[in-house]
Amino acid sequence: MRVHIDTTRCTGHGMCEAAAEDVFEVGPDGITHLLIDPDPSQRREVEAAVAECPTRALSVEP
């Protein structure tokens, strides 16, 4: 599972952090970063984060 963060769109709302706290973290630069390469078992949380992103900055490949 590959997660892509469009750093030009991300404004660090942190909704992804709320949905998948083990995967995303908003850094001091105000944009989110991947903490880990998510495991297939985390797919549901990651997909929730992608769906909830207010700026549509996240995408996930199968």
């Binding site: 030009t8 769109r9 991300c10 404004t11 660090g12 709302h13 942190g14 952090e17 709320a18 706290e21 973290e25 908003v26 850094g27 001091p28 630069d29 105000g30 944009i31 700026t55």
Partner: peptide, 19 residues
């Protein structure tokens, strides 16, 4: 609007994240 919105929001966004 973008891109100014993002420039201003990113300055402070980290402080307000759930974590």
């Amino acid at each position: 609007n973008p891109p100014d919105h993002g420039r201003l929001r990113r300055l402070v966004s980290q402080v307000f994240t759930p974590r």
